[in-house]
């Protein structure tokens, strides 16, 4: 995105962007940035509270591992899962929604019944069942969340497609002899991008939370690899040692919030009607 003026920059949610940049840097270079080895445990220094030991600013967990290092390295898993799931779920959902909404008829009925079926099964149950069959691994989690995640896109975007399909500019495009593909790509798709961006940014939050919940239930990325959900899961028997759950929890919260705020700003930026105001 090109910034034409300072005013546009000014409304950018700086803290969100800053946080997400840190998140991405941690995700990419996590292992070399972390001050200590996130998997190196030593029971002799377990459960050190935060802000007391210079070497362990956020304290250590029950196995004596540095929490700060684990949070930094855990970003990688959240990042990979988010990006991949949003890419796959978003693409599948958008393509199916475009076909379903624009072609209509039997195609629409079939796709929408699949969506209805998927939505009627409790999310967590399917996740647990599939995770049990597929065995916990990063790759399987991405597949699992993509299969579960595309239905939201399909539902919402199909509605948008139906609305846009009936507008006069699509009718005029048909009169001018535009092919179906051209109408879908040039007329309908640009007008659903807004919705797509909002859904994608909202899904960042959902994906991080579900990934964390799966890890919490022991169905996520297998230990000892650090992941935020896994850290929360580990902390459940040490509830009186508040720092074990608070720091990963706050990190998840801040990431999700930043994504949602950035998404809101992006949506306004991408809408030509708001851009100049």
């Amino acid at each position: 995105m090109v910034f034409n003026s300072i005013t546009q920059m000014r409304r950018m949610p700086i803290f969100s962007v800053l946080f997400l940049v840190i998140f991405l840097i941690c995700g990419i270079f996590g292992s070399s940035l972390a001050p200590l080895d996130p998997t190196d445990g030593d029971l002799s220094r377990s459960l050190i509270p935060p802000f007391q030991d210079r070497n362990y600013p956020l304290g250590t967990d029950h196995l004596g591992r540095d929490i700060l290092s684990r949070i930094i390295c855990g970003a990688r898993i959240s990042m990979i899962v988010c990006i991949m799931v949003i890419f796959f779920a978003g693409s599948i959902g958008t393509v199916l929604a475009l076909l379903s909404g624009y072609i209509g008829g039997k195609v629409d009925i079939i796709i929408m019944r699949i969506v209805d079926t998927m939505l009627s099964i409790p999310y967590m149950m399917i996740a647990i069942a599939l995770a049990a069959i597929l065995r916990p691994s990063l790759f399987n989690i991405i597949i699992l969340l993509s299969i579960l995640g595309w239905t939201g896109y399909a539902r919402v975007i199909r509605g948008e497609v139906l609305r846009i399909k009936d507008s006069d500019f699509v009718k005029l495009a048909k009169i001018d002899g535009c092919s179906k593909t051209r109408i879908l790509i040039h007329h309908i798709f640009p007008n659903i991008v807004n919705t797509l961006v909002i859904l994608a940014t909202l899904q960042v939050g959902a994906v991080i939370i579900i990934e964390s919940s799966l890890s919490f239930l022991g169905l996520g990325v297998p230990p000892p690899a650090p992941s935020w959900g896994g850290m929360l899961a580990d902390s459940r028997s040490y509830i009186s040692n508040w720092w074990l759950s608070t720091f990963p929890g706050l990190t998840i919260m801040a990431t999700v919030l930043s994504c949602n705020l950035l998404g809101e700003w992006l949506r306004l930026q991408m809408d030509p009607q708001f851009r100049q105001k």
Binding site: D168, F169, L172, H187, P190, N191
Partner: peptide, 12 residues
Amino acid sequence: FQDPYSSLSPRM
């Protein structure tokens, strides 16, 4: 057409 607001694609 009648409505000049819906007959032009807002993204073009």
